[in-house]
Structure formats: C-alpha cells, structure tokens
C-alpha cells in the first residue's frame, strides 16, 4: 500500500512540475510551487522522514511561497515571451537526463534493507545514540550533538542571509505619512480569526521547539512557525502595527543573540574542560549534560531562525509598501 501511495504522489509531483514550465502567469507558477512543496512533504512522510517533511512543509510551502509572492507584488505578474528558441535548452536537458537515468541503473534498488548505505555507519548511530545521548529522536541527537558544529554553521548561514537581505534592501521605518496603510481594513472576519489564532500558533511553535527531542520538531521548524504567526499578523493588521509589536531593530538583536547562545554553549563546555560543543561536560552526569546542551542550542537556533525569517519578510514588505502597492 505504501508503494501505491508513493507512486501516485510522485506522479502528481511530476505533473505539477511539468505544468510549471508552460504557465506564463507567475502567480499561478508560485502557487504551483507551494503545491509542489506540500506534495514533496507528503512524499517525505511516506518515506519515513518526518522531521524533513515538517521542515519542508513549513519552509517550502510557507516561507518560500510568501517571499516569492512578496517579490511578485513588486515585479509584476506576467512573464514575457523569450527571445531565444527553446531547442538548445531542451537538448541539454535531454542529454543530461539520459546520462542521469543511465547512472541510476547502477544504484542499489529502492528500499532494500541490505543496501550499502545502511551498513557500518547508520547502525552504529541507531544503536548507540539512545545510550550516549539519551533522546528518542535520533535525527535530533545526530543534528544537535554528534554534528553540532555543522548545525552551528547552518545557523550562521541563516544569519548571513539576513545580513545579505538587509544590505540589499534594508527595512524602512514608517516615518512619512504618504504611504497608505496596508493590511485588510474591511475584513472583519479575518481580524477576529487572526486575533484568535495567532497566540495558538505561537504556542504550537513553542511546543514544536521543546518537543523536538521526543518527536519530529526542533529549532528550525519552531522558528519558522513562530515567524509565520507574526507574518499573519502583519498581513492582516498592517506593517506599521507589526513594527510597533516586534520592531526590526529588536529582531536584528534577537538574531545575533541566537547565534551567540549557540556558540557560547560551545565555549562554556571548553571552559568546563572539554572540547568545543562537548555537551557531556556541562553537568556531572554526561547524559544530563547532553540534554542541557541540546535544549539550549535548539533554543538558539529557534530564536535565530524566527528573527531572520521575520526580518526578511519585513524587508520585502517595506519594499512593497514603498511601491505603493497594497
């Protein structure tokens, strides 16, 4: 049964991607991209990758789609006809595709438990990580403890994206009164429902943040969900009200605090006599030390991702307001 679901979902994904090539209306292309992202999240669940599905659904179908729509509001909705013929790209694509399919014939068959990828390294982590780190979620224990340095690098990459977007766009403070207020003035239903749901979404983000040790979840997903709550607030109530609730300067400070928190856990474990990001030295019992370390760094990651996603949305939103577009 799982095979049938897999086949059908992949076929739907292929049809969605194919249709994206031919559409000229960019709004429809971005919506199809949201559907594509959500379908791939479903496929990831079918392939037992629950953490990845969570992240793909929140990041791809949530933040990416919103940012692309924000860009579309500034650049315009229709794509013009290309001047080049499409024969050469089609040729290149066909040759590359044929080479890749010829390459996949050499790969081990899908799903067999004796594939080379499942030997040696993976069984070691599956068996030892509950004893060494003590968490049920093996993905979190590998991500936060065994490969904690890579996750620090990833957080810094997200922070660098914030710096890049702020250097390119900047967030403009609402000082002049010539730009009309954004937000949905006459949508009373949206006002009521949004006001009811935003605290619940933030609560859910906190649940995901701290529950990442026991089930799918963790810092990234939680940061993105919390940012989505504030993006909803901005869309319904307007950018200036959102600036007075969570200001851009505060978010920049928050983003740096998240990365600093992560790095200082590493430095603190060096101070305690271990290596950088060696959580076993944080408490007398090494497993308890691992738990402390993982909770604090996941908090750092969640804070940074929340601040970065919301800041990037503010930057895009200020640009859209500047163009006098509602």
């Amino acid at each position: 049964m799982g095979d049938l679901i897999d086949l059908v979902l992949l076929a739907m994904l292929a049809i969605t991607a194919l249709q994206m090539i031919f559409l000229k209306d960019l709004f429809a292309v971005v919506m199809l991209f949201g559907i594509f992202s959500f379908l791939s999240a479903l496929i990831f669940i079918n392939l037992d990758a629950v953490d990845v599905a969570f992240t793909e659904a929140s990041v791809g179908a949530g933040i990416s789609t919103v940012l692309m729509l924000g860009t579309l509001a500034i650049t315009g909705r229709k794509e013009k006809k290309s001047a080049h013929s499409s024969f050469l790209p089609l040729l290149v694509v066909c040759i590359t595709g044929a080479a890749l399919i010829y390459g996949t014939l050499d790969m081990p068959p899908f799903g067999h438990p004796n594939n080379p990828i499942h030997e040696h390294v993976a069984p070691r982590y599956i068996e030892e990580s509950p004893k060494e780190v003590g968490l049920p979620n093996m993905v979190t224990s590998v991500l936060a403890s065994y490969r904690g340095f890579d996750t620090l690098g990833e957080t810094v990459v997200v922070f660098a994206a914030l710096i890049g977007v702020l250097a390119l766009l900047g967030v403009r403070r609402q000082e002049e009164n010539d730009v009309p207020e954004s937000g949905f003035k006459a949508h009373h239903v949206l006002h009521v429902v949004a006001r009811f749901f935003i605290p619940l979404i933030i609560l859910f983000a906190l649940y995901v943040q701290f529950h990442g040790d026991f089930g799918p979840g963790g810092g990234f997903q939680a940061g993105v969900i919390a940012a989505a709550a504030f993006i909803l607030y901005t869309l319904v109530f307007g950018l200036s009200r959102s600036f007075s609730v969570v200001g851009p300067k505060f978010l920049q400070v928050l983003a740096s605090i998240g990365v600093l928190l992560y790095a200082s856990v590493g430095l603190f474990s060096m101070y305690k006599g271990g290596q950088f990001l060696d959580y076993s030295k944080l408490a007398t019992d090494p497993i308890v030390g691992q738990h402390y370390g993982i909770i604090v760094i996941e908090l750092g990651v969640g804070i940074t991702v929340f601040a970065v996603m919301l800041s990037i949305f503010y930057a895009f939103g200020s640009q859209a307001e500047r163009s006098n577009i509602q």
Binding site: F184, A186, H187, V189, L190, V193, F196, F197
Partner: peptide, 17 residues
C-alpha cells in the same frame, strides 16, 4: 473548521472588492 472557511471568505471578498 475555523481556518478553511475563513480563507475562502477572504479570497471571495478580495475578489469581489
């Protein structure tokens, strides 16, 4: 049950306005 009809309402109202 709360968000799906709200989304449809918002869409239809925006189209009408």
């Amino acid at each position: 049950m709360i968000t799906s009809p709200t989304a449809s309402h918002a869409l239809a109202k925006s189209a009408r306005h």
